[in-house]
Design a protein around this nucleic acid. Sequence first.
DNA 1: CACGCGTCATATCGATCGATAATACTGCAG
DNA 2: CTGCAGTATTATCGATCGATATGACGCGTG
Lengths: 218, 218
Amino acid sequence: MTRATTAPADRTRARRPSESIVADLLEAAAVEFAAHGFAGASTRRIAQRAGAHQPQINYHFTSKEQLWRATVDHLFTLMDAALPALDRPGPLGHAFVDLLHAFIRFSAEHPELDRIINLEATVPSARLEWLVATHLTPRFEVVAAGWRQLRSEGVGADLTAGEVWELITSFGAMHFANAPMLSLLGIHEGDGRSEAEAHAERVLAVLLPTATGRAPAP
Amino acid sequence: MTRATTAPADRTRARRPSESIVADLLEAAAVEFAAHGFAGASTRRIAQRAGAHQPQINYHFTSKEQLWRATVDHLFTLMDAALPALDRPGPLGHAFVDLLHAFIRFSAEHPELDRIINLEATVPSARLEWLVATHLTPRFEVVAAGWRQLRSEGVGADLTAGEVWELITSFGAMHFANAPMLSLLGIHEGDGRSEAEAHAERVLAVLLPTATGRAPAP
DNA sequence: CACGCGTCATATCGATCGATAATACTGCAG
DNA sequence: CTGCAGTATTATCGATCGATATGACGCGTG
């Protein structure tokens, strides 16, 4: 966190640039929404975590709902920047392996996104519809097309694209999103980079069991 | 739901038996806690869903926190009643297959429990510590011992007990807990009993890939 | 029929929620 | 140096939260 002051904005009025406040609010909102859900997160706590005052949220984002959407947009932007394209030159299998490694690594570094998605996933709502239509469906279609192509080449386990998506987003991402619980259970082995690579290999062992030589982790 | 009246308790004072109120409150609390989390669920909405008044929650459960624990206890009691023992006579592999089928079936019929667990799993809290120590750890140890025994017999995929637990609780249960999202994504194919059995077979295909003849679904 | 225990129903408390109005201040343009 | 646009800060609104006090009521007991 770039600014972890407990008290709200500095008394000396040394004004921060506006983009910094917005970025800090987005970062704080991601943590709070991921921890307590949309209804449970409080705009006062988000503002406090960002070192700002509560009305600044409505000033910069007009409403809690808009702040939530901006937070999700922001996290997906971060994720896209961290993931390689699937249609790059070279064997599709290698691109798929690299994409999965990058996704698992991102989930380890930013578990907030998977947490926010899972918090919304269980109940129909306007937020869930927006989330699926805006962010999930386009990405699912890309992955599904890649998987079907792989399968047509005779590569990959006997799973539908939907099952692959479920396996990656649940087994793959839950390992880091639910780290507090897994740690209490004695399962989690730390969340460093090596743990992310190891977990990606576990997922790949299920998805591409026959592929012997996989691309090394980038 | 046994009593789906929108208005709170009947005006005619035709008193319901106390156990009925408690049971209805537990059922309503499971739905609301699963939908909105502990912080987001409101005791007034829970009471209304159960056809009761809000102060009756404090009367029968003393606090919202105690109601949450009673709800979790109740759901685990339901689950235990639906699951066969792992140490029954006969091959351990068959017992394991039956247990997994029953677990997936229960998750399809009562997705509230997995939702509540996942809502708590992402943030350290006293509730999470209680949940893990009271309910999850004992059950994990039984499953882990069974899996290690299976592995020592040369059966099962090359996975640790922790990975098996993660796979079952994430990939296995999330399929039904996150049904609203998967439905919007076009992945979910209904939540009938056949879908539960099919999903159990998908999980088993990963866990016990070599076992050709599995026990039929009970 | 009358008593009394157990439960219900209403009213209300203080705290906190998201949102807004009103004011104060900063920093840049001229 | 002045004025204005943009932002920060304070104060406060109505709604809702969990919890409790209070008294009424149902119903089995004697």
